[in-house]
């Protein structure tokens, strides 16, 4: 009966144009539709699959501005049981280390956590470091880039897939797992699930509630900062290859010249 915490993040929809704000080069959250990050949907799905196989409870944890409640609701409407939302203006511009500290403190508020599941990287920041940092802070084993997760009693087995190949990992619970794209196909919430989610408990906490001080988190004390950003260049017209019997060769030559093959 594992007690699972799933980390979820609200990100700008990849369908919409994403921008940084002019002033401090943090994400311009008003410029794009905000959604639950797709990799987090997979994390929630995995937690629900484990719960459905062996009961247990799924708590969603999100650090983000007030409107992140929408992402939290989505996870709850998929079937998670309850949520913790850490929302504090002091967190504006927090880096991965600060975020992991806040997450670790919030996880400390949940009784008897067996498993923390996260996506391996978000589609906005793409740092891909939070799960590992969090595992260090919690002192839990980290099983990252999972494409398959099996929980048996107090043991967890993970197939880890990176560009280096596939590794089989095993650890004892509690542990931190991060999942990759191939882990599962997340379910859609049902209309009933959406209605039920409105009644599920969401605990909202500030940085102070977690016993952290405001100057430990946020842009001013962040270890990383975005100094400059430039928009992606407009799409260039493609290069046309006229096929005079040697089309295949020309395409191959082009790909070689771009070091793609």
């Amino acid at each position: 009966m594992p007690n699972i915490v799933v980390l979820v993040k609200q990100v700008p929809d990849t369908y919409s144009e994403r921008k940084l704000s002019d002033g401090d080069k943090t994400l311009d959250r008003d410029s794009a539709d905000a959604v639950l990050d797709e990799i987090n949907e997979r994390a929630v799905e995995e937690a629900l699959l484990i719960k459905e196989a062996s009961e247990g409870e799924v708590t969603v944890l999100s650090v983000g501005p007030d409107r992140a409640t929408e992402a939290i609701r989505k996870a709850l409407s998929m079937g998670a049981d309850k949520a913790i939302h850490v929302s504090d203006a002091a967190l504006h511009g927090a880096d991965v280390i600060q975020t992991a500290k806040v997450l670790a403190a919030a996880i400390g508020k949940v009784d008897g956590v067996d498993l923390v599941i996260a996506g391996n990287e978000s589609t906005d920041g793409v740092a891909g470091a939070v799960p590992a940092i969090l595992a260090e802070l919690l002192g839990y084993p980290q099983l990252t880039h999972a494409r398959k997760v099996t929980v048996e009693g107090s043991a967890i087995k993970v197939e880890r897939e990176t560009s280096d190949g596939i590794t089989h990992l095993e650890a004892n619970l509690p542990a931190v797992v991060s999942v990759g794209e191939k882990i599962n196909e997340p379910r859609y919430p049902s209309f009933k699930g959406i209605m039920a989610a409105k009644k599920k408990p969401v605990e909202t906490l500030t940085v102070a509630d977690l016993g952290l001080s405001a100057d430990e988190v946020g842009l001013a004390s962040a270890w990383t900062q975005v100094l400059e950003a430039s928009p992606k260049p407009p799409r260039q017209a493609g290069q046309k290859v006229a096929d005079e019997g040697d089309g295949g060769v020309k395409v191959a030559e082009y790909l070689v010249s771009q070091k793609l093959i």
């Binding site: 379910r187 859609y188 049902s190 209309f191 009933k192």
Partner: peptide, 8 residues
Amino acid sequence: RLLGRSGL
């Protein structure tokens, strides 16, 4: 079936 599972 997907519409059914989603309650639609």
